Deep mutational scan, measured.
Amino acid sequence: LTELETIYVTKEHLQETDVVRAVYRVLKNCPSVALKKKAKCLLSKWKA
Rank of each mutant, 00 (worst) to 15 (best):
A34E: 06
A34F: 06
A34K: 13
K47G: 03
C30Q: 08
T2P: 03
E16G: 11
Q15H: 09
K28C: 09
T10D: 06
A22H: 06
V23W: 11
A34I: 01
Y8W: 05
L27Q: 02
E5H: 06
W46V: 10
V20Q: 02
P31K: 15
L14C: 12
R21F: 00
R21A: 04
S44C: 02
V9T: 12
V23S: 03
K37C: 00
Y8P: 02
S44W: 07
D18L: 10
L1G: 15
T2L: 05
K45C: 05
K28Q: 02
I7R: 11
L4P: 15
K11N: 03
K28W: 12
K37R: 12
K28T: 08
L35F: 06
T10P: 13
V9E: 15
V33H: 04
K28M: 01
L42A: 02
A34R: 08
D18R: 14
S32G: 14
N29H: 06
T17K: 09
Q15V: 03
L27K: 01
A48Q: 11
K45M: 03
E16V: 06
L27T: 01
V19E: 03
E16H: 08
N29A: 10
A39Q: 00
L43N: 02
N29M: 12
L4R: 13
V23P: 01
K38G: 07
L1F: 11
T6N: 04
I7F: 06
W46C: 06
V33T: 08
P31T: 15
V9W: 06
V19W: 11
R25Q: 10
K47W: 12
V33C: 12
T6V: 02
E12S: 08
L14W: 12
Q15A: 10
T6I: 00
P31C: 15
H13W: 06
V20H: 04
E12Y: 00
E16C: 10
A22P: 08
E12I: 02
R25W: 01
V26M: 14
A22G: 10
L1R: 08
P31Y: 11
Y24F: 14
Y24T: 12
S44A: 07
L1T: 14
A22S: 11
E12N: 06
D18W: 14
V19K: 05
R25T: 03
A34L: 06
K11V: 04
P31V: 15
E5D: 08
Q15P: 13
I7C: 03
D18A: 13
E5M: 02
K38I: 07
N29C: 11
A22Y: 10
K37A: 05
E3Y: 07
V33M: 10
K38T: 09
T10L: 02
C41S: 12
K45I: 00
E5K: 05
V23E: 03
P31A: 13
S32I: 15
L42N: 01
K38F: 08
V26L: 08
K37S: 06
T10N: 03
E12P: 07
E5P: 02
Y8S: 05
V19T: 06
E12F: 02
L1K: 05
L14Q: 14
W46M: 09
L43R: 00
V23L: 12
V33G: 11
K28I: 08
A39K: 01
V9I: 08
K38N: 14
L4E: 14
K11I: 10
W46S: 00
K28E: 02
V9R: 13
K47R: 05
H13N: 12
L1I: 06
K36F: 11
V19H: 04
S32L: 15
K11C: 06
R25M: 04
V9A: 13
L4F: 10
T17W: 09
K37T: 03
K37Q: 03
K47H: 06
P31H: 06
E16S: 11
T17Y: 01
V20S: 03
V20M: 13
K36D: 02
N29W: 15
C30A: 06
N29L: 11
K47E: 00
A39T: 04
I7T: 14
K36Q: 10
Y24D: 07
T6E: 13
I7K: 15
C41N: 15
V23G: 02
K11F: 01
D18I: 07
A22L: 09
N29Q: 07
T6M: 09
L14D: 14
N29S: 08
W46H: 02
E3N: 11
Y8N: 10
L27G: 01
E3Q: 07
K28G: 05
K36A: 10
K37E: 07
V20C: 10
A39S: 01
Y24N: 05
T10W: 06
I7Y: 05
T2Q: 08
A48E: 15
K28P: 05
K45T: 02
K11Q: 08
S32Y: 06
R21S: 10
L27A: 03
K47A: 02
V26R: 14
H13M: 09
E3A: 11
P31S: 15
L43Y: 07
C41G: 12
L4A: 14
S44N: 06
L42W: 10
N29E: 03
V9D: 15
V19S: 04
E12M: 03
S32A: 13
C41D: 08
V26I: 09
L42F: 08
K47Q: 04
L27S: 00
S44I: 02
D18V: 09
Q15L: 05
T10V: 08
A34N: 15
K36G: 09
R21T: 05
R25D: 05
K47M: 07
E5S: 01
T2W: 02
W46R: 01
P31E: 05
C30M: 12
W46I: 14
R21Q: 06
K36P: 07
E3W: 15
K45F: 14
V19C: 07
K38P: 02
H13Q: 10
H13P: 09
Y8M: 05
L1Q: 14
E5T: 00
Y8T: 09
W46D: 00
V19L: 09
C41E: 11
C41M: 07
A48W: 04
K45R: 09
K11H: 00
R21I: 00
Y24M: 15
L43A: 01
V9H: 13
Q15Y: 03
K11W: 09
V26K: 08
A22T: 10
S44R: 11
V20K: 08
Y8G: 13
T10F: 03
H13V: 02
R21Y: 03
P31N: 11
E5Y: 03
T2E: 15
A22D: 07
T6W: 08
C41H: 14
K45L: 04
T2G: 10
T6R: 10
A34P: 05
L14G: 14
